[in-house]
Design a binder for these strands. Sequence first.
DNA 1: AATCCGTGGTG
DNA 2: TCACCAAGGAT
Length: 352
Amino acid sequence: MRDAELSNALLAWYDTHGRTLPWRVGPADRAAGIRADPYRVWLSEIMLQQTTVAAVREYFRLFTERWPSVEALAAAEDGDVMAAWAGLGYYARARNLLKCARVVASDLGGVFPDTVDGLRRLPGIGPYTAGAIAAIAFDRPATVVDGNVERVMARLHAIKSPLPAAKSELTECAAALTPQTRPGDHAQAVMDLGATICTPRRPACGICPWRDPCAARAAGIADTLPRKLPKAAKPIRLGIAYVARRADGAWLLQRRPDKGLLGGMLGWPGSDWGEAPTPAPPLDAGWRDAGAEARHTFTHFHLRLRVEVAEVPADTPPGEGMFVAKESFRPADLPTVMRKVYDIASSALLSD
DNA sequence: AATCCGTGGTG
DNA sequence: TCACCAAGGAT
């Protein structure tokens, strides 16, 4: 089957079976020539980096409700955006989201670039996201390669060499398939195929629009592709978190530095995280063990945090941190590991 | 080029 | 319980 036929078959499938998503334009509007809002496409694509649709849905709804335009987002307070992003992970995305919004609002008149090269220059926008926005929002014939596309291409052509080395070959396959007509729908169609039919485990080959031309299906190896190099084992790191509650109910928190793990997010003061962490209480107090440890797994290590708690007088100075008033403190504003620490600490403090 | 950076679901 | 995985980018 020629590339053009493959693309046509996929588009026909997409017109019937493509997913309805909050940041997408539906088939009826699409037929009427209505295009997606570049701001919403950009926002969704940033949120979807290494993140599932299910996890993104509610965040996308909250963000677009609170900040309906790139100008509104650009005018937001850093802390508000970081708090709104809390729980979604990869917090550099949120920092770059704000940077990008401010560049677009201030330097580009609130208008997103409509080319891959223009988009690629913006913070937080790499090869995938630039192609996705160019294709989806502006119908540019960009080649879009994400994890779904890699998997679909590896199976369609039965490419057995493992990722990440196979990336360039998979990109060439995807480029050859990209049509000049409806490239935005094509890009979304390949990703939908990967998300709903050509899934990592137990692909539904029987109902796939590409079941006949698929080389991996013919060879009976679809569910073994793409091959990937084994990943390094995750080491275990230890640490201590300190949760101080002032007599008036305020909590002692710190803003983490912009660089590195959980950069820019709120967190509890604590020790370093390693094999033998050095205790580092943020202030003198009657610290006591909360009786449970917070366990959390990051991308490249497991963490076990011992939790220590203290009740401190109303006139306690905040030291390196800041006391956040009871009324303005929301556990949901914290990254997940810090929220786990809060859950343990609060039950220990309240059970006295 | 290899490493760093989150999280929640899944089998 | 645990390894693997999901719409990557920055350095």
